[in-house]
Design a protein around this nucleic acid. Structure first.
Length: 238
DNA sequence: GCGACAG
DNA sequence: ATCTTGTCGC
């Protein structure tokens, strides 16, 4: 973890400050592998209630053992969104709640898979990179749709097919088709991991679904946390 | 100026 | 992100 993180890295007062914070954070992203043996893999995602005037953000972090990919722990938290969803600034909307959930974890993962882009972002700081740098944790971005860039060439239809994601002459990530007839995933390194390793780990975390198990379980956990919120606990009979 | 635009 | 059951296709 960097020295006590500057407030604007997580909760900037305006978009101009947020933009500057992203540039500063992006400079801290490490694009080479720097992590030890992987025994615990984390999955992260958030859930929102549509038309919620409270603007609540339900965040979930799940812990899966490696190998095996069984969920062995996790935590969730609720926070009020500081700002609305603005493409390119997703981190500032979700990171606060994720940090709250992170603080409740009984153990920390060795690698983190985040629902969203890593460095495949206009300023190189998608939410996976944002969270990775703030927590100083190896992270991988796994997005379900593109933000910037185009595949270098047409992506083959076969499962397992991949294609470089290119933007302005730079390679920012990889399109990965994890299932037949499913739209590809957009994988990009977040922090302390190389692009090649990021794709390798996403492949290893595959269990037959479109999304890798960590992110898939995090999505389920975030939804469960949201549905459990404000739901009265049925009284025990007797 | 116009269109694109993670979750 | 979220609203939602069945249904069509592999």
């Amino acid at each position: 973890m960097p020295e006590s993180l500057p407030p604007e890295w997580v909760d900037p007062p305006d978009l101009a400050t947020a933009r500057a914070a992203q540039v500063a954070l992006a400079a801290r992203v490490e694009t080479a592998d720097r992590f030890g043996p992987v025994r615990l893999i984390g999955g992260v995602d958030i859930s929102n209630t549509r038309f919620d005037p409270e603007n609540l953000v339900f965040a979930a972090v799940v812990l899966l053992e490696w190998p095996g990919l069984a969920v062995v722990g996790g935590a969730s938290a609720v926070e009020r969104a500081r700002m609305p969803y603005v493409p390119g600034f997703l981190g500032f909307r979700e990171v606060p709640a994720l940090l709250a959930a992170w603080a409740k974890l009984e153990a920390l993962p060795d690698l983190l898979l985040v629902d969203g882009h890593g460095i495949a972002h206009p300023r190189g700081l998608g939410i996976a990179a944002h969270l990775g740098v703030v927590l100083d944790i190896p992270s991988i971005g796994v997005a379900k749709s593109p933000l910037v860039g185009r595949p270098e060439a047409e992506l083959a239809a076969e499962p397992g097919a991949e294609q470089p994601l290119v933007w302005k002459g730079r390679r920012l990530g990889t399109l990965l088709r994890t299932r037949k007839r499913s739209n590809p995933l957009y994988v990009s390194l977040g922090h302390r991991i190389s692009e090649a390793s990021a794709v390798d780990w996403v492949r290893r975390c595959g269990t037959g679904y479109r999304l890798p198990e960590p992110t898939r379980q995090a999505h389920l956990a975030a939804n469960a946390a949201r549905r459990a919120h404000g739901v009265a606990i049925p009284a025990e009979p007797g």
